[in-house]
């Protein structure tokens, strides 16, 4: 067996189309999924027990089911409700729902990790809960949200390969097509590997830029890190 780069020369437009669709699907799923995630995270913090129970069920269910099952549930379930979408829409929706549960947990955890007094002091001056979130809580947790969100987004990008099973012509689907046409599976999958890798590198870089720009909580970190450092070196932290 020899590696035949000519296959890639012939089929690159297919790979390109697949990659482009994967990127678009993931971008939309990210935006929709993160929006749902933030709403779910906020709902998880309201006093109402009923709302919290519903939110708990939503997150718990989505996180305990393999993505391919979520996909099939949405794909075969929507027609029952009389809704017919093109496969790529259904797939994007399923991907967004899947990711939203994890994003919700990331956002909820970050909100809870902020000292309660921050939210409370915003409420005592008369801010509404949403205003307190917008002006006091979110600016402080934004930076910490980036790394776990990137992790989840990379996972989601990889899970998007499963959409090939409902005939969405994304990257993995195209590689299967090429492989079927050429009987050169190694070349096809090697090409796809490189493309997925390129996509994730770009996403990670964008995230790093974003993280550097959201420098809001940075200044307090300086203090915290100094404290942490002094513990690590076993020096007594200087009393302020």
């Amino acid at each position: 067996m020899t590696f035949d780069p000519a296959i890639l020369a012939d089929y690159w437009p297919l790979f390109l189309q697949g990659a482009w669709l994967t990127v678009r699907i993931c971008a939309v799923a990210f935006i929709v999924g993160y929006s749902i995630g933030i709403l779910v995270a906020l709902a998880a913090l309201v006093p109402s027990r009923i709302v919290r129970a519903l939110v708990g069920a939503y997150v718990g269910l989505l996180r305990s089911v393999p993505f391919i099952i979520i996909l099939f549930l949405v794909y075969y379930g929507l027609p029952f409700a009389g809704i017919r979408f093109p496969a790529y829409v259904t797939g994007t929706l399923a991907l967004a729902l899947f990711a939203s549960a994890y994003y919700a947990e990331i956002v909820r955890g970050a909100i809870l990790s902020l000292p309660r007094g921050q939210f409370e002091s915003a409420r005592t001056v008369g801010m509404s809960p949403l205003q307190a979130m917008r002006h006091v809580v979110f600016p402080q947790i934004l930076r910490g949200l980036v790394p776990p969100s990137v992790n989840m987004t990379l996972t989601m990008i990889k899970e998007s390969a499963v959409l090939s099973s409902i005939t969405v012509a994304e990257l993995t689907y195209q590689s299967l097509v090429v492989q079927g046409n050429t009987f050169a599976p190694f070349e096809a999958f090697a090409a796809v590997t490189l493309i997925y890798w390129a996509i994730t590198v770009v996403v990670a870089r964008l995230a790093a830029i974003l993280e550097a720009r959201t420098g809001t909580a940075e200044r307090e970190d300086v203090e915290r890190n100094a404290l942490a450092a002094s513990f690590l070196t076993l020096e007594a932290p200087k009393r302020r």
Binding site: Q118, E120, S121, P139, Q140, A217
Partner: peptide, 19 residues
């Protein structure tokens, strides 16, 4: 919420907004 600004509260831990 509408009446809250009428009552100024200074917490023991202050809770200034660090950002």
């Amino acid at each position: 919420d509408r009446l809250r600004p009428k009552i100024g509260m200074v917490f023991q831990q202050l809770h200034l907004w660090p950002h």
